[in-house]
Simulated scan of single mutants.
Amino acid sequence: MREMKVVPYKQEWKNQYEVEKQLIEEVFQDEIVDIHHIGSTSVPGLAAKPVIDILIEVKNIAFIHTYNNEMIKRGYECKGENGIEGRRYFQKGGEDRTHHVHMYEQGHSEVGRHLRFRDYLRKHPDEAWQYACLKQELAKKYQYSPAEYVEGKTSFIQMIDQKALRK
């Protein structure tokens, strides 16, 4: 059973992202348009689950499944769309996840949403702090219930998404 843990920000998360970015670039090479560090580990000072989220924009999402075996060799599970149309999702680390890779075709609306959310929190440390407190509270309350943890964050995330759209 997966345990929800939110820990203080760690400077090493940036380095972990850079290492994984190089590994992924070796796999997908010319398919990649851009790679971004997203999620809470990408916001300096923000407490987070210690999982590196990577967003990759690709030229054509229809070809990504042809790289599944290479991702498996590098320790990833290939999850297909995993509930989000137009996405390809990979996770690494099993129950103790270390990395999530979210792939979208260039121009997909989720790319902009993720980047706006990250950038807004980077520019608004007070709201990043509120988000960290909420996540810590939810992680304690729903320690073994990932779905309830995620649901508990939804309204805050939507509020930040709206504010980020107006900036």
Rank of each mutant, 00 (worst) to 15 (best):
D53C: 03
K49S: 07
Q22M: 09
A47E: 06
A47H: 10
T41Y: 05
I35Y: 11
S40A: 08
L23T: 15
L23R: 15
D34S: 13
T41R: 00
I35N: 01
V51Y: 09
Q29W: 12
D53Y: 01
E18G: 11
V27F: 12
K49M: 02
Q29P: 00
F28L: 14
A47V: 08
I32Y: 10
I24C: 06
E31P: 00
I52K: 08
H37T: 04
D30Y: 03
N15W: 13
I24K: 14
V27G: 05
P44Y: 02
H37P: 02
E20P: 04
H36C: 08
D34I: 10
V43G: 09
L46N: 04
Q29R: 15
H36A: 05
A48Q: 06
I32L: 10
Y17R: 07
I38E: 00
G45I: 07
Q16W: 15
P50C: 05
D30A: 13
S42V: 06
E31T: 02
P44C: 02
G39I: 08
T41C: 10
Q22W: 09
E20K: 00
A48I: 06
I35W: 07
Q16C: 12
S40C: 09
D34V: 11
T41M: 09
I35T: 06
V43A: 05
L23C: 15
K21E: 11
Y17V: 06
I35M: 07
P50N: 03
S42Q: 03
E20F: 03
E31M: 01
K21I: 09
F28G: 09
I32R: 11
L46C: 00
E25W: 13
A47W: 04
Q29N: 14
